[in-house]
Design a protein around this nucleic acid. Structure first.
Length: 216
DNA sequence: AGCCAGGACTGAG
DNA sequence: CTCAGTCATGGC
């Protein structure tokens, strides 16, 4: 039994990313930085109700109103500016979903990282969940889970964690999609928060398992 | 009452 | 290049 299969069996498919369009995925990826998803949903609902959840409309929105709508997501002044930068890129790229399809993954990733407010996790979230590219998303949960089971050191940085995963897993968008979502679910619901206190974690023996989706 | 949430930028050393 | 400080709302 592998970790992936056990997580999938326990939690079922997560159906990520919870958004209607690739553009909404990108907006959500930005708003969810260090923020509970429930708060992001409120902000997204405000934008939706205001009918500005398209690249063009969102770019034309006055910063004051934008900040008011995204307030529930926290860091609203910061995220207002970052969101504009991201949307400006999206518009300049004229629908990156198709516009970047022929480009190398590393090139698109580099381009995203150059946008103000887009770090490695946000870039990979957009690549994977909006653009359908096989770039594994690493987050705080992923790091805690891998480090706690001794697969990486606690000092490991983002790129190292990502390489550990991508080197061992087939480059498959559907797999990366589900795997990251499952790791987040494990981190949220079980014993892998910053203060571990759960002594009855059904997955506490994960150390004996493998990362690979296939047994063998 | 704190602590935490699906991070990233900035400035100092 | 490393790293503490910063940003802010809402749930528990």
């Amino acid at each position: 039994m592998t970790i992936y299969r056990r997580l999938l069996h326990r939690f079922g498919r997560r159906h990520w990313w919870p958004a209607k369009t690739p553009f909404e995925v990108a907006v959500g990826a930005m708003l969810t930085q260090n923020t509970a998803w429930a708060n992001v949903e409120r902000a997204m609902a405000n934008l939706s109700r205001a009918r500005v959840l398209t690249p063009r409309r969102l770019l034309d929105v006055p910063p004051r109103r934008l900040v008011r709508w995204i307030r529930p997501a926290g860091y609203f002044n910061l995220k207002g500016r970052r969101l504009r930068a991201l949307v400006a890129w999206w518009v300049r790229r004229q629908n990156p979903v198709t516009a970047t399809r022929q480009h190398a993954l590393a090139a698109v990733r580099q381009e995203l990282l150059s946008v103000h407010g887009v770090g490695p996790e946000t870039a990979d979230s957009i690549l994977l969940y909006a653009l359908g590219r096989p770039s594994f998303v690493v987050d705080a949960y992923t790091k805690r889970i891998l480090a706690r089971h001794g697969w990486v050191s606690w000092q490991a940085r983002y790129d190292e964690l990502q390489q550990v995963l991508m080197r061992r897993l087939p480059r498959n968008v559907a797999l990366y999609n589900e795997y990251h979502a499952l790791l987040v679910e494990l981190g949220k619901t079980l014993c892998l928060k910053r203060r571990p206190k759960c002594h009855e974690c059904p997955l506490r023996d994960l150390g004996a398992l493998r990362l690979e989706p296939e047994a063998g």
